[in-house]
Simulated assay, not measured.
Amino acid sequence: MAELSAKAVRGETEKAALQLLRERANLVGEAATARHERDQLAGALRDANARYAERYTAALQGGWTGEELAKLGLDAPESAPARRRRAPQPVTPHTPGEQTAVADEAAQP
């Protein structure tokens, strides 16, 4: 077997590394595609749930009772889960002379 030059070894190693990176990049691309599809379906489900809730409410307002609708196979729409508001982030107070000291240090030669 003939010995390979350093340049040939480097080239083969880089080629192998690029193939591994292509395979890994493909996996990330597939995950991104699946996430996009999931997000689209989740949006469609939210829209469908909202339409169903509106129609169900219209049926109740039109004189149907919840019991009657249940007998017809129409379950009450799920109420949207209560959204929690994020607690405000605390503001870190500055020591009164802190900004002055930083400005004084910057002004010194």
Rank of each mutant, 00 (worst) to 15 (best):
A101G: 05
L27N: 12
R84V: 02
T65F: 00
A76Q: 10
H94A: 14
H36T: 14
N49C: 09
Q40Y: 00
R83D: 13
G62C: 04
R84F: 06
A31R: 04
G62F: 01
P77M: 04
A44I: 04
Y52D: 12
A6V: 02
E105I: 07
E67R: 01
S5C: 02
G66W: 00
G11T: 03
E30V: 10
P77W: 02
R38L: 15
A53Q: 09
T57R: 07
D75S: 14
A8L: 03
D104I: 08
A17V: 11
R51L: 11
R86C: 10
P88R: 12
G62I: 03
S79W: 00
R35V: 10
R10A: 05
E12L: 15
E23M: 04
P96W: 05
L60M: 05
A6C: 01
L18W: 00
N26S: 13
P93M: 04
L72Q: 14
P81D: 15
R24W: 05
A107Q: 07
H94D: 11
P109D: 15
A6Q: 08
R24E: 15
A34Q: 11
T33I: 08
T13W: 00
A25F: 05
L18S: 09
E30P: 00
P96G: 14
A76N: 02
L18F: 03
P93C: 06
T92K: 12
D47C: 05
K7E: 12
L20I: 10
E14A: 08
A17I: 11
W64T: 10
D39Y: 01
G29R: 10
L21A: 15
M1G: 03
G63K: 03
A106N: 07
P109S: 15
Y52V: 11
A76F: 01
Q89E: 10
H94G: 08
Q108V: 08
A103K: 03
Q108K: 11
R38Y: 09
A42Q: 06
Q40L: 10
R35H: 04
E68L: 06
R38P: 00
V102A: 15
P96S: 13
D39W: 01
R46C: 11
G62P: 01
A31I: 09
N26F: 03
D104C: 08
L18M: 06
R22K: 11
D47Q: 10
A16R: 09
A70E: 12
R84L: 08
L41R: 07
L41A: 15
R22W: 05
L60Q: 02
G66N: 12
K71C: 10
E105F: 09
E37T: 03
L18T: 11
E12G: 14
A2D: 09
D47E: 12
E14R: 02
A8I: 00
Y52E: 07
A8M: 04
M1F: 03
A87V: 09
E30M: 05
Q99E: 13
A107D: 14
Q108G: 10
E67Q: 09
A2Q: 06
S79L: 04
G63N: 07
A48K: 09
L45N: 11
K7T: 12
A2V: 07
A16L: 06
A16Q: 06
A34L: 10
Q89Y: 00
R86G: 15
P77T: 14
V9M: 05
V91K: 12
E98D: 09
E78T: 14
E54C: 06
D39R: 01
A32S: 15
N26R: 04
D47K: 03
G43K: 09
T65L: 01
A2T: 13
A17W: 01
R24Q: 13
A50T: 13
R35E: 11
